[in-house]
Write a protein that binds this DNA or RNA. Structure first.
Lengths: 131, 131
DNA sequence: GTCAATGCAAAGGTTTTGCAACTGG
DNA sequence: CCAGTTGCAAAACCTTTGCATTGAC
């Protein structure tokens, strides 16, 4: 149980504690772009006495180590966490507020920005489903 | 003086008060992607006794009315304000942390997202200038 | 046994709110 | 005047911090 999570945590040089495993498990296997609050809710139900301090600290450590991704839609200050897999963008459904991963290949960049070395691109597409 | 700002405020059905004019003036004419804090600093120097409550309220009203744009780079919780002109994206210089507007035409979308009606696209490009 | 990780509660910073006072048309 | 706007201070909110305790190896 939780071998994947444990491995990932240890690979980053951290101790695979219950709290960390549960947080990572939630982000990787259960939640879809959760906020810190979502994570607090779920982990506190599934892990007796995990404290918010630990959760915030852990999330910061995970982001530092590159195990998860943090992002916030432009104009919002809410941070959403995301498993850090391949390169993808986000489609924001403006009706539901839900995120959807979309493939990076659906967007092409022309070489207009030639004197810059692009490191990372984050794209937020706000849209609603056509009836 | 400040005719442009006044017109814009009144066009949105609001009273063009000193406070509102100064806030809008700063965002439109002086600042480059300021934060709420930048706006507080500047307006309080140029407008006696403007309160933070008013500034925050005004910013929220301006955003609602579409007079300005609010955005926060993915992963950050700081909100930056921007004059709302034509459709453009942001190039984030990862060395300096500064934003730069880039033309929307430099990015093309393939029609992979056919069942969604796209309303708005926000693109954050993190890059650094080549040597 | 030792160092890292955790929990608690308090502090921190930012934004919002309630309400009374003010102001512009 | 009178609705809309503002200022003040308090509250709300979310996140971080300090420190003592616990837990992993």
């Amino acid at each position: 149980m939780y071998e994947i999570e444990s491995k990932l945590i240890e690979k980053s040089g951290l101790t695979a504690t219950n709290q960390r495993i549960m947080i990572l498990h939630f982000i990787y296997e259960i939640a879809d772009h959760p906020t810190a609050d979502d994570i607090i809710d779920w982990t506190q139900k599934h892990c007796p006495k995990i404290s918010v301090a630990t959760i915030y600290n852990t999330l910061n450590v995970f982001v530092e180590k590159g195990m998860i991704h943090a992002m916030s839609p432009p104009g919002s200050k809410t941070i959403y966490y995301d498993k850090n897999t391949h390169h993808h963008y986000h489609l924001v459904d403006t009706k539901t507020g839900k995120f959807q991963d979309i493939d990076a290949k659906s967007i092409q960049f022309s070489h207009q920005i030639e004197d810059y070395a692009v490191e990372k691109v984050d794209v937020f597409i706000y849209a609603h489903k056509k009836r």
